[in-house]
Nucleic acid binder design. Structure first.
Lengths: 135, 135
DNA sequence: TATTGTTATACTCTATAACTATA
DNA sequence: TATAGTTATAGAGTATAACAATA
């Protein structure tokens, strides 16, 4: 079962990645944007912790987003070491559009191709996958 | 729900990828080895189709596996254009060892951390994920 | 002409190592 | 000393473009 899951994960991620990159914003970038939308502005170290990658990796992603104008860095009011990363209006607008235009492959497929019972099965499995991901 | 799934997929794959690479054989390479073990020898184009990547991408993976001695190319008996890619004895041995040593992160976590009921939920969800992956 | 395999090249994602600035 | 941010560099994974050989 673990094998089947692993193979399936690989296939799925490739597909989601390709679909996500189609509008110029990659999967990692999307993940960071969504984190900022959910949790508000935060630091690179905190983002790295949430995404389970190294700060250096997250910084590369944030740099790409900043170049596109979707996030901005501002100095922390009291701690001179920190830079707070926040969504810009443009970043918020991008996420809004993505939602509005059907979001993406997964949401579309899940509603079109799955019966309510199947959707329920999937909904029950997601927290389990999350636990696997969180180790 | 699609959002949650997408985020979870990203986290999971990063983790599996890191764990898989620990013994020198990466996730993509493992996926190709398993395909060959299941389906027997095949061509680059067919592998690419199965993995849902371009032939060029699969060729890079196969080259890496060939350098490690896990696969070998032999000319197709009748079609001069094709090269058949097959597991070597060494490749088969590698897969066998992986299985024997607990396979990997996922199998271990799934048996240690999940109740039978949870394992059942996950088992029911995997074919659904597979359908998503197969588009 | 179509298909198979390939090389060249580039970009994303992630990592390790090494550094600076601030606490 | 510890933490936050960063740059430099490298390797995996994938893509597009262009090409040779064979059908």
């Amino acid at each position: 079962m673990a094998e089947e899951l692993q193979l399936t994960l690989g296939l799925l991620v490739r597909q989601v990645r390709a679909a996500s990159a189609a509008d110029g914003v990659t999967l990692s970038q999307t993940s960071v944007l969504k984190h900022l939308a959910r949790e508000g502005s935060t630091t690179a170290v905190e983002l790295a912790r949430a995404e389970k990658v190294r700060p250096q990796s997250v910084i590369a992603t944030v740099n790409a987003l900043q170049e596109q104008g979707f996030v901005a860095r501002t100095p922390h009011p009291t701690d001179g070491r920190q830079l707070l990363i926040a969504l810009t209006a443009q970043g918020r607008e991008f996420l809004r559009k993505r939602q509005a235009t059907g979001l993406g492959l997964l949401a579309q497929l899940m509603t079109e191709r799955f019966t309510p019972a199947e959707q329920q099965t999937l909904a029950a499995a997601i927290p389990l996958l999350r636990r696997l991901a969180e180790h």
